[in-house]
């Protein structure tokens, strides 16, 4: 499975997360965001509107992304977070690190004007 990436600004993209991010496709997600980091993208909006499954391997891959861009003041924002993803975010207390927005547009406004 591949992930769709859409540019929002020169250093900002939105990644459509699809139905699942888990141990089966976490490596695909890693190579997707790695290409963007190599192209100097530093802000990532992750669109979770359709995501029914986020397991710990999947979440770990998002952490890897965060660890790479946070030294450059990059951000990872969660947009339109589905209920299953919300459960994981609550449990791991990662809402303290990843800002959440009701929609991709809201995330875009906040990240680009910042």
């Amino acid at each position: 499975m591949s992930f769709t990436v859409e540019p929002l600004a020169p250093d900002t993209v939105v990644i459509r997360m699809g139905e699942a991010l888990d141990f089966r496709n976490a490596d695909d997600f890693k190579s997707t965001f790695q290409d963007q980091i190599d192209a100097d993208v530093r802000n990532f909006v992750l669109d979770f509107s359709k995501t029914a499954v986020l397991d710990s391997t999947g979440l770990g891959s998002i952490f890897s992304l965060y660890r790479q861009i946070s030294p450059d003041d990059g951000q990872v924002a969660f947009a339109d977070v589905s209920r299953p993803v919300q459960v994981v975010v609550q449990l791991t207390r990662t809402y303290k690190v990843f800002r959440q927005f009701p929609t991709v547009d809201a995330a875009e406004d906040a990240l680009i004007s910042a």
Partner: peptide, 9 residues
């Protein structure tokens, strides 16, 4: 009560 997962910040 719980805090952030390990290895992130």
């Amino acid at each position: 009560h719980s805090d952030l997962i390990l290895g992130l910040e």
